[in-house]
Design a protein around this nucleic acid. Structure first.
Lengths: 344, 344
DNA sequence: CTGAAAGCGCTTACAG
DNA sequence: CTGAAAGCGCTTACAG
């Protein structure tokens, strides 16, 4: 029975393919009667136009790709954060009649698929400045939006979080509870990177409270579940006098709490913990996790909008970066600093 | 500078487009010299053939879609399980030069995009028997593989888990610890569905141990994080005498443990919990979760292979269903039944 | 308001 | 071993 084409429709409706095409795209001038007839035949024949043929003509595919670089093994597998991000992107794209290709790439990837498939745009998730992948992407000259990435170049399109504020809020919360020795599990502090911004917020909160900044309290090891777990050793070093830890990811915070638990350290009685992301399960951790909330799905939606702005050509140069607000979700993993508690 | 086409290559290499095409697809007979020359020009011009043009000719897109039905709100957002599944699929597809479109669909979706884009195949994740979506997909007549779905029709391609064994292993483990009143948070027990199979395993283990089957112990409410949490009420009903719970998802188990914790019930001292999936974070829960392990990434890989078998036409009818093994990961959420413990 | 025709970039018989 | 030509299914000037 083979695919039905525009020709079949034209024949059955007794019109030209031009007219059928016009009806489909409601372009040109067509009489209401003809439109009705053609539409009916389209319905009868269950005709739907071939995307390949259109792409070939239009040099556009209505296809965007979510590019997920596999930089560190396991980094992406581990974090459910990305699933939500991708769902948000898919949702946004669908609302605009775009489809999204999901693509894992490694260092040696060549991006020929972009021109081969006439991709209309790319959303790049979780990459770093200065990686070969980034250079390749930039050479591509295709609309692009970066998410959860570490880009300082100011002319790139990005959907960001108010990371500085996140760092500030979490730290301020802890200070308000009387904590003075607040450790940071920050991940790599790359200039202008996400973690760097959060770190700035941390410093601002300290300064505002008149507390000294001690670089010894900051750990730049990458924060995965396992990383957080291992950090428990360092955190409980008695010479450090740490009473609170701000971990820049919820998965890291979960690992840390587990590690502390095994060392017999009670959260929050002995040590308070703040996370970052507000993953779906943080409310179900024991204790439930105080963390910095972000709307991940919304982020995905906005990334698509930003990409489509470029594709459709309405590049509003004033809004290359969209910064989303954060808020602090206070739960049970934070409490008064031990010395304060025993004061009265 | 516009896209470079096969014509440009032909001209620069002083050959016909036919020859260039032959070199690209190494079809036909071409002299080694010509091949070398053409390849060099391709390199120089950075030529990569247009997928749209190819698709138009070949009626094939080298594109498959992962279809994710939004049946219950939140069901998919919640479970990081799907992220791993999709990563496995992507990885498998990439290894075979296919790209994958990620697509959320709701009840009213029409699947015209399949023919429009000449999709080569579909992987359908997490759907149920008898849904309108399923009917539509089956009417499509496109290669298809179902995952994490509830299909009894025996002629469908599916990647399954040895669910019966999973149910058996978890239950047997609990029985071995002296538990006799073992509750099930099973989700819907649809005939031949995933949960049904697990339930069969549960029954087999009971029978083998000479324990009675009590339908009152089985709860069919859907098991999400919140669902597990709420179930804590029922589980602790003193009339039930429950000392262990088998939850058919890790997210549900997490919710339940949280709920029990808030009721002052200690896991595993008072109640033992077994989960299902072995999500990445189960080792970091407090207590760490005893659960049924499955290799999700591998499942994705196999789904792609099964799909490609159909697409390439090597349908080996003997293997429409691939059943993957499960194993039990014993951790700290299970322990001796209270009465046994106090026996000696 | 409607239609004939060119062209998008490929591949594949077919001829030589 | 190589090339001219048809055709995949659309859309868009262009002419009427």
């Amino acid at each position: 029975m083979g695919k039905v084409t525009i020709k079949d429709v034209a024949k059955k409706a007794n019109v030209s393919v031009t007219t059928v095409s016009n009806v489909i795209n409601n372009s040109g001038r067509t009489s209401p009667d003809t439109i009705r007839k053609v539409k009916q035949v389209i319905e009868e024949l269950q005709f739907s136009p071939s995307a390949s043929a259109r792409n070939l003509r239009d040099k556009s595919s209505h296809l965007i790709a979510v590019v997920v670089p596999f930089l560190e093994k396991g980094r992406l597998q581990d974090n459910p954060f990305y699933w939500q991000l991708v769902l948000g992107i898919e949702e946004g794209a669908r609302n605009h009649q775009f489809h999204v290709i999901l693509l894992g790439v490694d260092e040696e990837e060549n991006f020929s698929f972009v021109s081969e498939r006439h991709l209309d745009g790319l959303i790049v998730v979780g990459t770093f400045e200065g990686t070969p992948i980034l250079k390749q992407i930039q050479a591509l000259d295709v609309p692009c939006v970066f998410m959860d990435s570490y880009m300082s170049e100011f002319n790139l399109y990005q959907v960001l979080l108010d990371d500085e504020m996140g760092g500030y809020l979490g730290t301020k919360h802890l200070i308000g509870l009387g904590h003075q020795r607040i450790a940071l599990l920050s991940g790599k502090l790359q200039q202008n990177g996400v973690n760097y911004k959060r770190w700035l917020g941390y410093r601002r909160a300290l300064e505002e409270a008149g507390l000294p900044y001690d670089p010894e309290l900051v750990r730049e090891e990458p924060v995965s579940t396992a990383g957080g777990y291992q950090a428990s050793q360092y955190i409980t070093d008695p010479r450090m006098n740490i009473t609170a830890v701000f971990v820049f990811s919820d998965v890291g915070a979960m690992g840390l709490i587990k590690g502390l638990h095994e060392l017999g350290v009670h959260v929050p009685r002995d040590i308070s913990i703040v996370g970052f992301d507000d993953l779906f399960y943080t409310d179900y951790m024991i204790p439930s996790l105080t963390t910095v909330n972000q709307d991940v799905i919304e982020r995905g939606n906005i990334a698509v909008r930003l990409l489509l702005d470029q594709i459709v050509g309405e590049s509003r140069d004033d809004a290359r970066k969209v910064v989303l607000p954060v808020s602090l979700k206070v739960r049970k993993s934070t409490g008064p600093a031990p010395n304060v508690q025993s004061a009265p």
